[in-house]
């Protein structure tokens, strides 16, 4: 194989050694044909990825009414944005919802994975499949169901809380922190199973002899989990955290559907960064301003990802 330069069967007339015959076709994919097969992604990326990025970067420097005036205004959108308390409010809400959903979600996912890892568990495939069901349910359907659960007057959760002795009903839509908790619950419900499967895969890759020697040393199941499982999951935790951060900073459908308004509610308690972008573009028809919001979101994601990256590096160097 190494002696033979891969050639395309359509071009080469040279006799081919029989040994290599089976792989020539595959090998030739590394050449020009490879570009053809990867082209769909790049074409799609150009149309739906790069072009909108370029376009929105361009219009971020304009006062851009989609049907009316489009005038250049330099950095005005950005300077206005930095003084816009609605924008900072949206950033606060986003980070708050992100924190409320990510950390409990991690703990639950790891816990679920630990349960699923149990060798005595029956119907393994069934449980693993069921974990993914919330993830493939439409967000709108989830929002309708959760909207009923969190209803102020007839919601199940308030009913439950009043049995527990809560003196008055909580308004999960109007009040800021309960509202964030409601949204975080929706997000957690959707993603906890998905992440549990990732943790499960990573747990199954932990060598069995680590546990064996731990139990020989007299470690309880809990100690095994703390001192064997968790340290081995470090990289997976970082991965899930980064992916969750990128998704969490773009949370959109949940606050929109649960709150039911595009301005994020009466005190803008549900207004997240992406919802604010949407409101500027499609309610106020300020496309240029919305594009500027988009660019700032990109920078925020970059900064947070950068922090994540540094944490990962530190964790990795500690391991060595």
């Amino acid at each position: 194989m190494s002696a033979q330069t891969p050639t395309s069967p359509w071009r080469s007339k040279a006799p081919k050694p029989k040994k290599v015959k089976g792989v020539t076709g595959i090998a030739s994919l590394n050449g020009k044909w490879g570009y053809l097969f990867t082209a769909p992604f790049f074409v799609m990326f150009l149309i739906f990825g790069l072009a909108p990025i370029v376009y929105s970067t361009y219009i971020a420097f304009f006062h851009w009414d989609p049907l009316g005036d489009q005038t250049f205004n330099g950095l005005e959108n950005f300077t206005n944005l930095l003084q816009d308390d609605h924008f900072w409010n949206a950033l606060r809400n986003t980070l708050n919802i992100w924190a409320l959903s990510t950390f409990p979600q991690m703990a639950m996912s790891i816990g679920l994975a630990a349960v699923l890892r149990n060798k005595k568990l029956k119907f393994k495939t069934f449980w693993r499949t069921i974990l993914l069901v919330p993830n493939i349910t439409s967000v709108i359907a989830v929002a309708i169901v959760f909207g009923q659960l969190f209803g102020r007057d007839f919601g199940l959760i308030n009913l439950f809380l009043s049995y527990l002795g809560m003196p008055h009903h909580i308004d999960f839509i109007e009040e800021t922190i309960p509202g964030h908790i409601a949204i975080a619950t929706m997000i957690t419900w959707r993603w906890v199973g998905y992440n549990a499967l990732i943790f499960l895969a990573s747990m199954l890759a932990i060598p069995e002899d680590l546990y064996e020697s731990a139990s020989l040393d007299g470690a309880s199941a809990w100690q095994q989990f703390i001192y064997v499982t968790l340290p081995q999951l470090k990289n997976t935790i970082t991965f899930v955290l980064i992916v969750g951060t990128i998704g969490g900073l773009q949370v959109f459908a949940e606050p929109l559907t649960l709150g039911g308004t595009m301005d994020g509610g009466s005190t803008r308690q549900f207004s997240t960064l992406t919802l604010y972008l949407y409101e500027q573009a499609f309610i106020n028809n300020k496309w240029g301003y919305a594009a500027a919001v988009g660019i700032l979101i990109t920078f925020i994601v970059l900064i947070v990802s950068g922090i994540n990256f540094m944490i990962t590096r530190r964790l990795a160097s500690e391991e060595q």
Partner: peptide, 20 residues
């Protein structure tokens, strides 16, 4: 019209929820 109406609606909701 729509945007202005939304802002006033939100304003009244704040009063209703006794937030302001």
């Amino acid at each position: 019209e729509r945007a202005i109406d939304t802002a006033f609606g939100a304003g009244l909701s704040r009063v209703a929820a006794k937030k302001m």
